[in-house]
Amino acid sequence: MRRPGALVALATATILVLMPFWWMVSMAFKPEAEVFTQEPRLLPAQPTLGNFSVALDDGNLGRAMLNFAIVALIVVVANCVFALLAGYAFAKLPFPGGGAVFLAIVSTTMVPVAVTLIPLFLITKGIPLAGGNDLLGQGGSGLLDTLAGLTLPHLIGPLNVFLARQFFLGLADELGEAGRVDGAGELTVFWRIYLPLAKPLVATVAVFAFTAVWDDFLWPLVVTGSAETQTVQLALSRFLTGGNVAYGPAMAGSVLVILPILAVFLFNQRSFIAGLSEGGVKG
């Protein structure tokens, strides 16, 4: 331990950063009367599990977590398959016009959500043959207020296509050539030769796709109506009314929502962080 100064600074910073979480957990176990006391106490005087049952029951949080898990799973899988395939094609199987198309795709990463929000809303409503729509996308509600509708804006992230292309560009062409000489088809070359080398990329794309859904609030807010399709982000906000919060249940709900991802994060910290930092080194 050569640098006690660094350790102290690091510990202080970490504790400061974690303080709000302390209050979150503490309030999750506090009965309502304890939440609003003149002098907030770090630990609940009379801990209760009541907030958790309120969060799950009234907040319909269990359903929201399941919804989120389904949406996130679809989005992660779709990104891992299609963004990787596209990135691979742009890098290793160039086709006429591919360069221009790739540029166009990359250029969309900076488009704010607000620009596409309303059109996407109308497009989601007009998906043919869904939600009572006819072949022309008229007459029904399309995929609005459905889990499928929730996945729509995130299925293939342009940034993920970009990352995939950059990654595959960095792998030698000779690998594929060797496979082709042995008579392997293109799909086999991709599947057997390049993909096994691309596991870090898969982790990165998965983390990126996951966080895209995880961080999104506006789209679920706009696209869902009923409690049946709410995801966790919205479900949590339902504890809020006109600037007032049922803090106990809200904090209990937050704790419940965070626990699974915290488990995943703590046990896979390295790949999680590596995945998130990937874009930085690449961009």
């Binding site: 395939l85 094609a89 086709f95 006429p96 166009a104 059109p119 996407l120 497009i123 293939i156």
Partner: peptide, 25 residues
């Protein structure tokens, strides 16, 4: 080249419909 196009097609189609088109719309 054709296979490359096929590999990229889903992403291109998706991004055209759900990114480019919404922008223009």
């Amino acid at each position: 080249r054709l296979i490359g196009l096929a590999f990229a097609a889903p992403a291109i189609a998706y991004l055209a419909v759900f990114q480019m088109f919404p922008m223009l719309y």
